[in-house]
Structure formats: structure tokens, C-alpha cells
Simulated assay, not measured.
Amino acid sequence: MIKSLTVSHSFHLKLATVALAILGLSGCSGVISGAGPYKGAIESENTTYNLVEINANTIAPYMRSAARPMQASIAKPVAPSARLMPGDVLSILITDNAPEGSALFAPLSTGGTQLKTRINDQGKISLPYVGQPFVAGMTLSQVEALIVKQLKGMTTDVQTHVELVGDLSGSVLVAGAVKSPGRFSTLQGPLTLLDAVNQAGGPVMEPHLVNVTVRTGNQVQQFNYEDILAGNNMVLRPNSEVVLERARQRFVAMGAVGEPGLKDLPAQNTSLLDALSSVGGLREGSANPEGVFVFRMGEGDQAKPTVLRLDMRDPAAIFYARQVVIKPDDTIYVTNAAVHEWQKIISPVVQTMMVGRVAGIQ
């Protein structure tokens, strides 16, 4: 019996010693975190980054901007003059009103002579009496004038009408993150950027996660698809290329949050509160509300990184978190509460000591 009491006393003494050691450790390092740096270490003086305590006096540079208003203007499609290129198919109507017997083509009264020709890889077409003129780079009206010029002297009164019926020069290529990529014709009329994307089935992701690149051959423009929906639409030039790609709109959530990992920003102008909500919020029972940090790389070669800190125990911090903007590549880090770390440390120690106690009693 005396041996049992001695072992029990020794066990409790060791347990108390471990607890005091852990309390001392927490006092030295601030709040312990098992998923990253200690809260105290982040808050200590350093030359690597700027630590900003978010409050009413410091929040202004980190607030999200106001939502941009929707534009009332619309893109008005105006048919541009398409420049022909190899692969285009032309339908050519030639009428010849010369006296009967001297006409090379059918007269207008009978519907004229209808011809169809494709521009070959050398940029030429082939027509009877006209030969093989080079037409690549010309407009339809220029081809009409060329045919009339080539037939001059062969007949007295010829008229032509040229129509593009199979086009590469007038089409638009849509590729990338759309449901049905492909080349879309402008024969039915000019296409706006929204027209082209809609004909390709629309983007496969949320609008704010899609960047749009428009190439025209001598100019490159980039947009966020959400901005296009807000009214920043445009008429596409023939033979343009439209490429939709995933925008780099991601952040990292670490520490005591519900769903840590690499996440998509839930909106284009995401607040810290929205971002925390999208990862399940602070983990109940293990998070330290006083240790909510946002790590942000500096902008520019000389700019130092910034670490923002919020004390979520302050009721006003909820409003601050609603106003602070989260940028792509930010890292949100929530430290663990000290008691959670103590439990992780004490549990295996207690289990080991309990095993030793049982062995000692036996």
C-alpha cells in the first residue's frame, strides 16, 4: 500500500512538473502554434517584413476598393472590311450586258454567271477569262474592281458582285478555358467579345477566375472576364484570337482554420472575412483569435513584405476583416491556442507515465 502511494505521489509530481514547464514555455514564446511560426515570433522586432496591427488608424491602405459600377454603354457591331486570306471561299457573280453573241458571261436578265472559287495557298484565285490574279489581303470591293479591270477590252458592259461564303479571314478563334473551343464565322455579322465567348459555350470557371487575352496580329489586350460582363465589351476584328485562361486568383490558408490549403478567391474583391468563411472559419476549440495574420509579398523590387495582424477578440475586428482586401498569393495564417498545444504535448506524456505507473504498481 505504501509503495502504491509513493508511485502515485511521484506520478502527480512529474505531471505537475511537465505542466509548469509547458506554462513557462508558453510565457516565453507567446502563443504556441504547431502549424507555423509562433505568434510571439511573428510579433517580435525584425528587418524582414513590416508588421501592421490592423485598427481604425492603420486599415486605410489595406481596404478593398469600391465595386466598379456597371457601364451603360454597349458595343455596337459595325461590319469591318475583311481582308482576304488563303483558304477563303468566294462566290462571284459576273453579268455581261454586251450585245448577244459577243457576251462572255450571262446577262443580268438571266441571272448572270455564278462562280465559286477558293483562294489557294499562294493567295490567288482562278476564273475564266480573268486568269489567276493575286487577291490575298484585298477587300471584297477591291476584288470586284480587279475582275472588272481584267475583263476590260474583252467585253463592253460587265458587272461583278463578290461575296465571302467560306471564311478564314473573317472568322474568330476562341480557345482555352471554354466549353466548346473553335473557330467562329463572322459571315452572319461582326462578333463582339461576348458573342464569341458565348458561341464557344462560355467559360468553364467563375467569371472572376478567368482572364481573357485578345490578339489581333498587331495588338494584344487582356481583360478579366468579370470586367467584360460589367460592360467592357468590344467588337472583334476579323481573324482575331481569343484565349481564356485561369486567372491566378488564389490564396493559401494555414494553421487553425477549418479547411487549410491552396484556395480560389471567392470573388474578385475578396475581403479577409469572406476568405476566412470560404475555408470554414477559425477552428473551434483550437484557434487563437488573437493570432490571425495575413502574409503579403512586397510589390516592387525594393518593397518589404507586409504582415497584417487582427485580434478577432476585439468586436471591431469583424468590421475590419470585412474591409481588408485579400490579394492573390496572400497567405492567411491562424495560430493555435496555447491550451490546444498543451493538450497535444501532455497527452502522450500522460499516457507514457500511466503505463509506467501501472508497471510500477505491478
Score class of each variant (00 low, 15 high):
T47I: 04
L146F: 06
S109G: 11
A67G: 12
A79M: 12
Q150K: 15
I92H: 04
F105M: 05
V18F: 05
A145Q: 10
N97I: 02
P61G: 00
A35S: 15
S81H: 09
S10T: 06
I32Q: 01
I42M: 03
P77S: 11
Q150I: 09
G137A: 08
G34Y: 07
G137R: 07
A19F: 09
S65A: 15
K152V: 13
T139L: 03
K124T: 15
L115M: 02
I147P: 11
S81Y: 08
L51W: 05
S81A: 11
R118C: 02
G123Q: 03
L84N: 02
P128F: 09
L23S: 14
L5Q: 10
N57K: 10
S126V: 04
P37M: 08
I22W: 03
A60P: 05
G131S: 01
Y49M: 04
L108Q: 13
Q71G: 12
T117G: 04
V78S: 10
T117A: 14
A19N: 13
S109H: 12
G153Y: 01
G40V: 07
M138R: 14
V31W: 01
K152N: 15
I94L: 03
A106P: 01
G24H: 02
L90F: 00
K14T: 14
Y38V: 05
I147E: 13
S44R: 15
G30P: 00
E43T: 06
A60W: 13
S65H: 12
S109D: 12
I94K: 01
A79C: 07
F11W: 15
T113P: 04
V7H: 10
S81C: 06
P128E: 10
A19H: 09
V18C: 03
Q132M: 10
L108V: 14
A16D: 07
S109M: 08
K39R: 14
A16V: 13
N57E: 14
